[in-house]
Simulated scan of single mutants.
Amino acid sequence: MPHILLAEDDAAVRSFVTSALAHRGHEVTAVEDGLQALEALGESREFDLLITDIVMPGLDGIGLALRVARDSPDLPILLMTGYSAEKQRAHNLDELIARVVVKPFTLKEICEAAEEALLG
């Protein structure tokens, strides 16, 4: 069962995505921001995918993606955003990330994007 790390500051979105992925058989560790995601990654847990919102307090998703790409280059990264300007910022990271999923998205869309990223 793939283990996914989800970093999302909005509790409703975090719950929605966690439930959707768990329903598809994935194990999900959900955290509120990029700093908590780094803590989870540092606790020697093995993750198969990082899904992160771009706009978060503390360490945003772009900063998190850059750190993860440097420290764990084999970990696929999926970004989420509801802001078109942020999507453009993420476009500059094409080589580091699997995809950018634009909010609002459906359960099916986020699950398919995650499963695509897991397959490489």
Score class of each variant (00 low, 15 high):
Ile62Ala: 06
Ala65Thr: 00
His26Thr: 06
Asp94Thr: 12
Ala114Gln: 04
Glu27Pro: 02
Leu41Tyr: 09
Ala40Pro: 08
Asp9Ala: 04
Ala65Arg: 00
Leu35His: 12
Ala117Leu: 04
Arg70Pro: 00
Leu6Pro: 02
Pro57Val: 10
Tyr83Pro: 07
Asp48Tyr: 03
Ile51Lys: 04
Asp53Glu: 11
Leu41Asp: 09
Lys103Val: 07
Arg99Tyr: 09
Arg45Gln: 14
Pro57Trp: 04
Gln88Arg: 13
Glu27Gly: 11
Glu43Asp: 15
Ala117Asn: 06
Cys111Val: 15
Asp33Met: 03
Ala7Val: 08
Val100Phe: 06
Asn92Cys: 10
Ala85Glu: 15
Ala114Pro: 01
Asp53Asn: 10
Gln36Leu: 12
Gly58Glu: 13
Met80Ser: 06
Arg67Ser: 06
Ile54Phe: 01
Gly34Val: 10
Leu49Pro: 05
Asp71Phe: 02
Lys87Gln: 14
Leu41Pro: 09
Gly63Asn: 07
Asp48Val: 02
Ala113Trp: 03
Leu78Gly: 03
Gly25Trp: 07
Glu39Val: 12
His3Gln: 11
Ala37Arg: 06
Glu109Asp: 14
Glu109Lys: 12
His91Thr: 12
Leu38Gly: 05
Asp10Val: 12
Gly82Thr: 07
Lys103Arg: 14
Phe16Glu: 10
Leu49Ile: 05
Leu41Met: 13
Asp9Ser: 10
Val55Arg: 15
Val55Glu: 12
Asp60Pro: 05
Gly58Phe: 11
Leu78Cys: 05
Lys108Arg: 15
Leu79Ala: 00
Met80Arg: 05
Gly25Phe: 05
Asp94Gly: 13
His23Trp: 09
Ala7Lys: 04
Pro57Asp: 15
Thr52His: 04
Gly63Pro: 00
Thr29Trp: 01
Asp60Glu: 08
Glu39Thr: 13
Ala40Cys: 09
His91Arg: 13
Gly61Asn: 08
Val102Gly: 05
Glu116Val: 08
Ala22Trp: 00
Glu112Thr: 12
Gly61Phe: 08
Leu93Tyr: 00
Glu8Lys: 08
Ala40Glu: 12
Glu43Asn: 14
Ala98Phe: 01
Arg14Leu: 11
Ile62Glu: 02
Val102Trp: 02
Ala69Asp: 01
Ala22Ile: 11
Phe105Pro: 08
Val102Arg: 11
Ile110Cys: 04
Ala98Gln: 10
Lys87Trp: 02
Leu78Ile: 01
Ala7Asp: 05
Asp60His: 04
Ser84Glu: 15
Pro76Tyr: 03
His3Trp: 02
Arg99Trp: 05
Glu43Leu: 12
Gly34Gln: 09
Arg70His: 04
Val100Arg: 01
Met80Trp: 00
Ala69Lys: 00
Ala37Met: 07
Met1Cys: 10
Ile4Cys: 04
Pro73Cys: 02
Ala40Val: 09
Leu119Asn: 13
Thr29Lys: 05
Ala11Cys: 01
Ala69Val: 03
Glu112Arg: 13
Gly34Asp: 07
Leu38Val: 12
Pro57Ser: 13
Ala37Ile: 10
Phe16Ile: 11
Ser15Leu: 13
Arg67Met: 03
Ala114Arg: 03
Leu35Pro: 00
Lys108Glu: 15
Glu109Gly: 11
Phe47Pro: 09
Thr81Gly: 08
